[in-house]
Design a binder for these strands. Structure first.
Length: 928
DNA sequence: CAGATAGACGTTTTT
DNA sequence: CGTCTATCTG
């Protein structure tokens, strides 16, 4: 405990009172939370499953998990059972909770922003979109495509915020009812509904609703400690969730910094954190004021920025520098330039100057030379302002990464791909298409073009068969690429180009999946027509700010990001350019907005959704506190009238004594060898991903790094439905309730969801599913009471930062008293889950980590009529070997060495993406 | 010099 | 559609 400050130690040891930790920037918050969780776990009688910790992002969760694991294994030497502690996002928690305890939701899947929009657009009336009234005189109704985003925002706000329902127009209420009806009829959650339904379960009457009773019983029995990180960004619905989880007396600890609230436009409410102590009884407040990240100059500057926020809207606190960095005159700069070009040039000059300057991460550490990745340029808007810097960095050959902006549809490669479908419906000629592909540099082998055209020709023929499912867009796309024999290596240009192009092609495969998931059951001609229209008019906008990070490897490059994306990060040198009036603080937005659907007065603190000067000040505070030592704030007049003047934030900073307004002419210290700080990224993969990785690293790369998806199969959902049905059987058995063959039809009807099947297939599959369940009861009925666990969540920690997680179908005690790990297998041709011995041994490793107990047997139970079951002993030698192989697999992801198999194997035979990898070997001459 | 009016312009994003 | 700026008007 002596490495901690007094405040930190107080936070760590306070386990029994409601605790509010106010953590200033760089105060070692994550370390404190992890240490506190380790303390909780060390108490006698506390099990890992008694602890729930929420983070804002998956990334933050991975980091926290790894820290806790590190501390626990160091201090206790044993991490058994830790997989049962939940550390993750609230969304993930709610989804998991529902799909464990509420059988009706087992079959539900989650819509992304994009697929939710597609669903609303396609069902414009049924979703309520076009019937939802607005207060606009000129646009009395919302329009398809144009307003689906706004409509979804309103649908979220209505559920997430504190709303005065009496003020909501009846038409809007009716629209919302329609929307939810559609969502549930499609067995889908949007991001809000996972939390909303969980809250309903937590607040429902257990006497009336058996699902609510099950959820509440679980919470009452298991949850004893709840920790909420980034508490300042919690919205009212999430606050309700937290209250529901602690309603039976669990301890609550919230951690946050009100000065860093930057998501109020998404509904988060600063007042949650500001009034926390007044809303819960006997709250202990601890302020972590020591900043271990930045120099005194930066801390003082940040303090002066925070003081611009009116005192009634923030918690009083005084951040102090712990002296981890030394402030020197000239580290902090506020500079003005005549134009954009001069500003950009200076930033590049400065980055080049700083490269190789000795830097110590903490006092006493070995100095290293700063490198590219130690510099970050943070914008209010990357989209609006970053172009000129990108051009200059490229001109100077300085490596850089622009976060979160990919502009997928701008690239000639994607335009060429879009051309395939435009040509298909006759919007452009085949010659135009060829020209597009030539211009994009995607035709290494012109001879193959005719084969590709044949694929197109066949695709155009809508009289091939009656079933709409055979007119599969994804299939056509992959066939087209296959006909061209397009390979990563054979593309012209620099070697990295192949990787870049494949990344784009893979993203496009994801675009097709998104579309086809919603439009699968549309007549072929209409479907292709709608696809092209969507690709030209909507998709570029939908995907404009979609995720662009390619894998886990971190390049040594300058980071360009928005301030929002920089949250939680730090760099030795930070640049904040384009500090222009109306940009930062940003001018308020016009346009058709939320309050044209929902009356402003019905919402508590409606200003959140509009953006205030205080919000912008908090955002700027976040930007400043990212810097460890060097911080440059710059301004040059923008091109348009609106952005000609200096930002008031810039002027405020320039007036601070710690800041220089002219760069010093004194020479910088002597340079040493630049050495990038290599952070080992956290790698978390699922069992199914691991399966691909162990079989063929390149197949893993194509699927999970590039994003290629296999075509949708009409029977998709069959295997899942069977699994879910049996899961309910076994879960009920654990609770003491035994189902039998007469329940088979009801089970299948509850769990089998076949969104892509045509009517005839649906009937066939339903019948065979019922038979399979009946057969299961007939063959295994007597063993059902021997269930120990069903759908058991397990995790394997192989090496620091490498986690594999997944679920084991069934764990049971045989009549021989042996412990058996069981995997169900069904012939679901869409997702032929081939369970290998390797994979089952991974389960055995996971089970051992979870319970400390060794499994004796691994079994595969085939649910098919003709299928064979297998049963074999767990092999200890294989267990050790599998650990090594997973560790290697983790390393290969991090270093991005994911090569093809050396030669054609049986894995290639069954791989549905093999066309993107290699040719089929020629059959032996005799067979030709 | 206050007030009216025309014209320019349009952010951030996890789950 | 709303906000900010420049310019015009009395």
């Amino acid at each position: 405990m002596k490495d901690y400050t007094k405040a930190q130690a107080e936070a760590i040891t306070c386990l029994d009172e409601p605790l509010q930790i106010i953590a200033c920037a760089g105060s070692g918050k994550t370390q404190v939370i992890s240490q506190r969780i380790a303390r909780i776990l060390a108490q006698p009688g506390v099990q890992p499953r008694n602890v729930v910790a929420f983070t804002f992002t998956e990334k933050a969760a991975a980091e926290l998990k790894d820290r806790v694991l590190g501390i626990v294994s160091r201090e206790n030497g044993d991490v058994t059972g830790l997989a049962e502690m939940y550390i993750g996002t609230m969304h993930g928690y709610c989804l998991d909770l529902l799909q464990r305890l509420v059988p009706d939701t087992f079959k539900f899947s989650v819509l992304s922003d994009i697929t939710a929009r597609l669903l609303v657009d396609r069902n414009s009336r049924k979703s309520g979109l076009t019937v939802c009234p607005t207060s606009l005189a000129s646009t009395p109704r919302l329009k398809r495509y144009l307003h689906s985003k706004l409509y979804l925002q309103a649908m979220s706000v209505l559920r997430e915020d504190t709303i005065d329902e009496s003020q909501i127009p009846p038409g809007v209420v009716a629209a919302q009812v329609d929307y939810l009806k559609l969502l549930y009829s499609k067995a889908s959650f949007d991001f809000t509904e996972m939390i909303n339904l969980t809250v309903q379960m937590l607040e429902g009457d257990p006497a009336e609703d058996e699902d609510a009773a099950a959820v509440q019983a679980h919470v009452r029995e298991d949850i004893r400690y709840v920790v909420v990180d980034e508490y300042q960004d919690v919205n009212p619905l999430q606050e309700q969730l937290i209250r529901g989880l602690v309603q039976f007396g669990a301890n609550l600890c919230v951690v946050g910094d009100d000065d860093q609230t930057i998501y109020q436009w998404r509904g988060s409410q600063v007042s949650n954190i500001v009034t926390f102590a007044g809303r819960y009884q006997g709250v202990r407040q601890v302020t972590l004021a020591d900043n271990f990240r930045s120099s005194e100059g930066i801390v003082e500057l940040a303090q002066s920025v925070a003081s611009l926020i009116p005192s009634g809207e923030r918690l009083a606190k005084e951040m102090v520098s712990a002296g981890s960095q030394k402030w020197e005159r000239g580290d902090l700069l506020a500079l003005t330039f005549d134009d954009d070009a001069a500003e950009t040039a200076w930033i590049c000059d400065r980055i080049e100057q700083l490269r190789g300057i000795p830097f110590q991460g903490s006092p006493g550490a070995e100095p290293r030379g700063l490198s590219w990745s130690d510099c970050a340029v943070l914008y209010r808007s990357v989209r609006a302002d970053a172009d000129s810097l990108v051009a200059e960095l490229r001109r100077r050959n300085i490596p850089y990464v622009v976060k979160g902006l990919n502009r997928l549809f701008d690239s000639p490669e994607i335009q060429a791909v879009v051309g395939i479908f435009r040509a298909m419906i006759g919007e452009i000629t085949d010659n135009d298409l060829r020209q597009l592909w030539l211009d994009a540099g995607l035709l290494p082998d012109l001879l193959r073009w005719d084969d590709a055209l044949t694929v197109l020709e066949q695709g155009r023929d809508f009289d091939r068969g009656k079933r709409w499912g055979i007119y599969n867009i994804q299939r056509l796309y992959l066939d087209f690429l296959e006909a061209l024999e397009l390979r990563e290596e054979t593309l012209s240009g620099a070697p990295e180009r192949g990787e870049l192009v494949f990344y784009q092609l893979g993203k496009f495969s994801q675009v097709i999946s998104d579309f086809e998931q919603i439009y699968f059951n549309t007549s072929p001609a209409e479907k292709y027509d709608a696809f092209v229209k969507w690709l030209t008019h909507q998709a570029p906008d939908y995907y404009a700010d979609s995720d662009a990070d390619a894998g886990y490897a971190t390049p040594d490059a300058v980071t360009l990001a928005t301030v929002h994306q920089a949250k939680g990060m730090q760099w030795p040198a930070v640049f904040v350019p384009c500090l222009r009036k109306n940009r930062f603080p940003s001018k308020r937005q016009g346009g058709v907005g939320l309050f044209h659907v929902i009356p402003e007065t019905a919402v508590d603190q409606p200003d959140r959704y509009k953006g205030t000067v205080q919000d912008e000040t908090r955002l700027f505070y976040v930007a400043v506190t990212r810097a460890q030592k060097y911080l440059a704030l710059t301004f040059s007049p923008g091109h348009s009238q609106l952005y000609r003047n200096r930002s008031l934030l810039f002027d405020h900073c320039a007036a601070q004594t710690w800041v220089s307004t002219r760069q010093s002419t004194k020479p910088l210290p002597d340079k040493i060898e630049p050495k990038a700080l290599q952070e080992t990224p956290q790698v978390t993969i699922s069992f199914s991903e691991l399966k691909y990785l162990l079989e063929c690293p390149y197949s893993f790369k194509l699927r999970f790094l590039y994003g290629f998806n296999p075509p949708i199969h009409e029977a998709l959902g069959y295997g899942k439905g069977l699994h879910d049905g049996l899961a309910e059987v076994h879960k009920k058995a654990i609770a003491g309730e035994l189902l039998g063959p007469s329940d088979a039809a009801e089970l299948v009807d509850r769990h089998l969801y076949l969104p892509f099947a045509y009517p005839e297939l649906r009937t066939t599959l339903r019948t065979s599913a019922i038979k399979a369940v009946e057969r299961y009861f007939a063959v295994h009925g007597e063993e059902i009471p021997r269930t120990l666990h069903s759908e058991k969540q397990i995790q394997v920690h192989v090496a620091p930062g490498v986690t594999v997680d997944g679920r084991v179908d069934l764990i049971r005690r045989l009549d021989t008293d042996e412990l058996s790990i069981v995997d169900f297998k069904s012939t679901d041709r869409a997702q032929a889950e081939d369970v290998t011995r390797d994979q089952l041994h991974v389960y055995a490793v996971g089970y051992e980590e979870l319970t400390g107990e060794n499994a004796d047997l691994i079994e595969v139970l085939n649910l098919d009529e003709a299928g064979r079951n297998t049963r074999e002993e767990v092999e200890d030698s294989l267990l050790a070997e599998i650990r090594d192989r997973i560790r290697e697999a983790g390393d290969s992801i991090r270093s991005n060495t994911l090569p093809r198999l050396d030669n054609w194997t049986h894995h290639c035979e069954r791989c549905d993406l093999v066309a993107l990898c290699r040719d089929k070997p020629n059959p032996p001459a005799m067979l030709r």
